[in-house]
Design a protein around this nucleic acid. Structure first.
Length: 420
DNA sequence: TCTGGGGTCCTAGGACCC
DNA sequence: TCTGGGGTCCTAGGACCC
């Protein structure tokens, strides 16, 4: 059986953990740049505020005092997430951390009554030790555990725990689950299914497997099997990420190549740092630029390009240089850019890099590796005290809107003291 | 005025090999 | 007139997740 533990309204709950005055109030947390709503409390959901709503559409509610708003603080959420996960680890022979706010506990061979007791204990302990409310779904497949979790969240009668352990319960739950609520059925396929009369998860599992394969391919079949009670989605045992991407929208649109270079080199430097933190190197780097897709009065342009490294690398000077080379290649004058990003790919273990016998740049590379190591030793807190001259001066958050940030409760002692 | 960021997997088609 | 069969690898784009 699988236990899916999912934090309720996670970002909002993180804010509430340190600001109890937000308890019971309608609250939303905004994306980077204060762009749109990415988390809602139950109260703000009940007001009809949708996920992804641009902030300017609900600003009036905030101004009138009907809605509380916070800019997102990913450092804080990451910290609280690790605390939650470390509690879960005590309960599970095997823990699969699926995202910042949810994890599967693989609980083979444990009697159902015991599982229910564990679920209850998890809810109590996470609430008391971290201050975050969680819900638990229990079922024989990951997809069904997701379904069960929805019920646990939606209906207070479950007291946070919902179990799907018999065919009868499974069929009942599927009949009550709209097809677009199913894990693995997205916004493209849901309308397709609706059009041919599949409205609920039960409608979906009633169709023949071949029908599903024709319409949705092997992914659809996997979801179909899981909903019918056969586990086929395995956890991906991966040591390292396959790609790392650093991208941001700008508070204002940028046209000047000099200004854009500062941002792109910053993103590249962050990618390089993330690589080194994981003991990885990348064989390929990509850069993309984006004009403002919401301004149909302006010319649109979404270029991207790649560059391969002769030897996979993680050093900042080399990665930044490559990013700027690509940027200059794809940059076009007259475009007003709203967003840019750097992606590093073909990621491998830094310990097993294949050197090149005829590598002419070996000395330079080693020197740049040493420079990067020193940067890491100085920039321990994540701030870029030491950076390349082509990078942007100041804090990386400059030029990113963040007008509603609450305290740095988990990283700044004085701000924590303030609330006490 | 104002619209996020970071991932994964699969598939089709092209280029190439014998 | 008629033009094989069987592979691999890579890439871009689509779909999905949080």
């Amino acid at each position: 059986m699988f236990l899916l533990v999912d934090c309720n309204n996670f970002f909002v709950s993180c804010e509430r953990a340190f600001q109890p005055q937000l308890e019971g109030r309608p609250v939303v947390v905004l994306s980077n740049n204060d762009g749109c709503v990415v988390a809602r409390s139950n109260e703000s959901k009940a007001m009809g505020i949708k996920m992804g709503t641009p902030f300017f559409k609900v600003r009036a509610l905030v101004d009138s005092g009907a809605l509380e708003v916070r800019s997102s603080n990913y450092t804080l959420y990451g910290d609280l997430s690790s605390r939650v996960m470390s509690i879960l680890r005590d309960f599970a022979p095997k823990l699969e951390v699926y995202s910042i706010d949810e994890a599967f506990l693989v609980m083979d061979g444990i009697p159902l009554e015991r599982l229910k007791a564990i679920a209850g204990e998890i809810i109590r302990r996470v609430r008391r030790w971290v201050g975050i409310p969680v819900s638990v779904g229990i079922a024989p497949t990951r997809t069904l555990a997701k379904v069960a979790n929805h019920f646990a969240k939606r209906y207070s009668g479950y007291r946070g725990v919902c179990v799907i352990d018999t065919d009868e319960k499974r069929e009942k739950a599927l009949a009550l689950t709209p097809i677009d609520d199913v894990w693995g059925i997205g916004w493209r396929n849901a309308p397709k299914l609706e059009r041919v009369g599949v409205h609920t998860a039960a409608d979906f599992t009633a169709r023949p497997q071949e029908w599903v394969r024709t319409l949705m391919g092997v992914i659809g079949v996997r979801t179909w099997m899981e909903l019918r009670g056969t586990p086929v989605i395995g956890e991906e045992e991966r040591e390292r990420r396959q790609t790392i991407c650093t991208s941001r929208s700008f508070a204002d649109m940028i046209t000047e190549p000099e200004e854009l270079s500062l941002r792109v080199s910053d993103f590249a430097a962050i990618c390089a740092r993330k690589l080194r933190d994981e003991g990885s190197v990348a064989g390929t780097i990509g850069v993309f630029l984006m004009s403002n897709r919401f301004r149909d009065d302006l010319e649109q342009y979404f270029p991207q390009d790649l560059e391969h490294f002769d030897i996979p690398t993680s050093n900042t000077p080399e990665i930044v240089a490559a990013s700027l080379k690509i940027m200059k290649r794809i940059y076009r004058e007259g475009i007003r850019y709203k967003k840019a990003g750097v992606i590093v790919m073909d990621i491998q273990d830094a310990r097993f890099v294949q050197p090149d016998l005829f590598d002419a740049k070996k000395e330079e590379r080693l020197r740049n590796d040493r420079i990067s190591r020193i940067m890491d030793q100085v920039n321990v807190t994540g701030r870029q005290y030491l950076r390349l001259a082509v990078q942007r001066p100041g804090h990386y958050a400059d030029g990113i809107r963040m007008e509603h940030r609450s305290g740095r409760f988990s990283t700044d002692w004085s701000e924590l003291m303030e609330i006490h």
